[in-house]
């Protein structure tokens, strides 16, 4: 069956990659794995704890609440940023001087570091000196995200949408400009409406970039840390305490290395699992169907 020559020396070619990956990912990860199965009472003395921490973390309300917050946040972010990004990309000009202007404007928020974005919105939302806070106060709306969980969520979502929709826009735009003119011409000749052009040409042609956009935005929003840390510190109460914030509290605040390590592993696996689900669903969309149909018929 396999007549290809077999030579074990080929392993030497992949060895450098193995070493790099080992240093950059596997070894640090192993220390986490190591902590996650041990307990310590200090003095660098460790005891075998088995799956105890994993069970504890998975059964704790604290972890579950944070996880629900994360999932809710990512879902809201995706529901806003993806359609908005597509809409903005569709509205952008395709040629002329305005293309560069729009692209630069779109790229600007992406250049700002996370904590700066947090600080910008922190000041922006203040009732005494911030434009948004001041305006709202003048309108008679009590705006204090330090006390209202709803307002805290609104401002974090607004901030993320402001910061990252551009990424979706740029990705979608690159997908849109790659569509050959002939598709639009053919659609005109076929008498397709604007909606059908979007549904049957633009959206399918954007599928790949949309997959990247959704994956990036999901992973990023699911690991959100800096913005709520700067803005709300996880409050009011625990209402904006996301997994990452909870993790840092556990690991550094309480110095519970075991539970923190178990939690990060679970956290990592959830991100991996959900990314895989997105990837599989989206790459198979429109591909698997014909085979299935043929089997049915």
């Amino acid at each position: 069956m396999n007549n290809k020559p077999f030579d074990n020396k080929a392993w030497f070619f992949v060895l450098p990659v193995f070493i790099l990956v080992a240093i950059s990912a596997v070894i640090p990860l192993m220390t986490v794995v190591n902590y996650s199965v041990q307990d310590s009472f200090g003095n660098n003395q460790f005891f075998w704890a088995g799956t105890e921490w994993f069970t504890e973390v998975l059964n704790s309300d604290r972890f579950r609440d944070s996880l629900v917050r994360n999932l809710t946040f990512s879902a809201i972010i995706l529901c806003i940023e993806i359609p908005l990004g597509i809409a903005v990309a569709l509205a952008m000009p395709r040629k002329g001087i305005w293309v560069s202007v729009c692209l630069v404007l779109m790229a600007l928020p992406l250049l700002i570091p996370w904590n700066v974005v947090g600080t910008i919105w922190l000041i922006f939302g203040r009732a005494d000196i911030g434009l948004l806070g001041f305006t709202l106060a003048k309108m008679g709306i009590v705006f204090n995200y330090g006390q209202s969980w709803l307002q805290a969520w609104i401002i974090i979502i607004l901030m993320d949408v402001w910061h990252w929709t551009s990424l979706v826009v740029l990705l979608c735009y690159s997908g849109l400009v790659a569509i050959p003119e002939a598709y639009y011409q053919a659609a005109r000749i076929d008498g397709a409406s604007r909606w059908k052009v979007f549904r049957y040409i633009q959206l399918p042609k954007m599928q790949r970039v949309l997959l990247i956009a959704i994956l990036l935005r999901f992973m990023d929003s699911f690991m959100i840390y800096t913005e709520p840390f700067v803005l709300t510190g996880g409050g009011p109460g625990n209402t904006t305490t996301f997994l990452s914030i909870d993790l840092v509290k556990t690991a550094i605040g309480q110095f519970d290395l075991g539970p923190a390590a178990a939690m990060s592993l679970i956290y990592f696996l959830i991100v991996l699992l959900l990314s895989w689900v997105f990837y599989t669903v989206m790459t198979n969309y429109g591909m698997d169907a014909p085979e299935k149909r043929e089997v049915e018929s």
Partner: peptide
């Protein structure tokens, strides 16, 4: 569309997500 002509382009234009039959039905349904 008002002239009622058909055009075939250099690169085949098909609607990826539709079946062959749906592709052919598209201009008629429109």
């Amino acid at each position: 569309e008002q002239r009622n002509i058909a055009q075939v382009f250099q690169f085949p234009v098909i609607y990826d997500t539709m079946t062959v039959a749906e592709n052919l039905a598209f201009p008629l349904l429109n």
